[in-house]
């Protein structure tokens, strides 16, 4: 074969590999894991200054609500009513702001805090967009596995396995223990009890069960996930049947 022909073949393969849906999902999932830490760190730094102005802004507010409130309050009070915060809370916050407990900040410092708040809001919105994108990609490519295993758990499984093809070759027992490899091999080495579940433990159906039945149910769930991924690769839709059997088993163990 010619040199040019070989280079063209590698270029084609490169595009195929980079355009792969698995790779996109894994990349986005890896970013999403680290973004919340950045948001939390910036939020804590913002609170150091803004607490002087609004000492009563509680931790009961989510970060997004808090930042939105802070940004809107500075511009116009009417817009605050569009937020989900109750009116009583808003009144109390403003009351204490106007009392002698809090301080009014300088213009320069206020600019800095407003910019910081905007950055945090941007990060939160990009995170939401990424989650939406991952959801879309998973639904397009792995319908069965999306319904049987939740999107978060499917993402982590893909990340550990490396690709959907490799994940589809795993037996159910391996899928049950994905994510607990370190404990598993440690147990084998010292002749102790092996773990019963890995990433699957965070599945909402597993969490809701009593401790006694968690391992039992995770075994059946792993079996169904293994079937679902195999069906996804062969383009079959069987998630309704799988869901039925899972729910019957779940109701028995409840």
């Amino acid at each position: 074969m010619n040199r040019k022909e070989i280079i063209e073949i590698t270029k084609q393969k490169l595009k195929e590999k980079l355009n792969n849906a698995d790779q996109k999902i894994i990349n986005l999932a890896q970013i999403i894991e680290k973004v919340p830490n950045n948001i939390n760190e910036l939020y804590e730094q913002l609170r150091v200054i803004t607490d002087q102005e609004y000492p009563t802004l509680d931790q009961s507010l989510t970060i997004k609500e808090y930042v939105l409130f802070y940004l809107l309050e500075e511009k116009n009070e009417k817009n605050i009513k569009n937020l989900n915060i109750s009116e009583k809370n808003i009144k109390e916050i403003i009351k204490i702001k106007n009392s002698n407990v809090s301080i009014d900040l300088n213009k320069d410092i206020k600019e800095i805090t407003l910019n910081l708040a905007k950055d945090i809001l941007n990060l939160i919105e990009t995170k939401e967009k990424m989650e939406f994108e991952i959801d879309k990609l998973l639904k397009e490519n792995y319908v069965n596995a999306y319904h049987v295993a939740t999107p978060k758990i499917l993402c982590k499984m893909l990340e550990i396995a490396g690709s959907s093809k490799r994940l589809s070759r795993f037996p159910a027992s391996t899928i049950q223990l994905l994510g607990s490899e370190k404990n598993f091999f440690k147990a084998l080495k010292f002749n102790k009890n092996t773990p019963k579940y890995g990433v699957i433990f965070n599945h909402p159906l597993v969490i809701s069960l009593p401790f006694k039945n968690k391992a039992k149910f995770s075994r059946t769930l792993a079996a169904k996930i293994a079937i679902a991924i195999k069906a996804d690769i062969t383009n079959n839709k069987i998630y309704e049947e799988l869901d039925k059997t899972i729910k019957i088993k779940h109701s028995k163990l409840k």
């Binding site: 040199r3 070989i6 280079i7 590698t10 270029k11 490169l14 590999k17 980079l18 790779q23």
Partner: peptide, 29 residues
């Protein structure tokens, strides 16, 4: 001739660019 083989698509991008500058490299993914 140098045949360069690698599995990672990200590093292969740079190897393909290198092979365009140097005519005796053949990249294979």
């Amino acid at each position: 001739v140098v045949y360069g083989i690698d599995i990672s698509p990200y590093s292969m991008q740079k190897l393909v660019l290198l092979s365009e500058e140097r005519e005796n490299i053949i990249p294979i993914l």
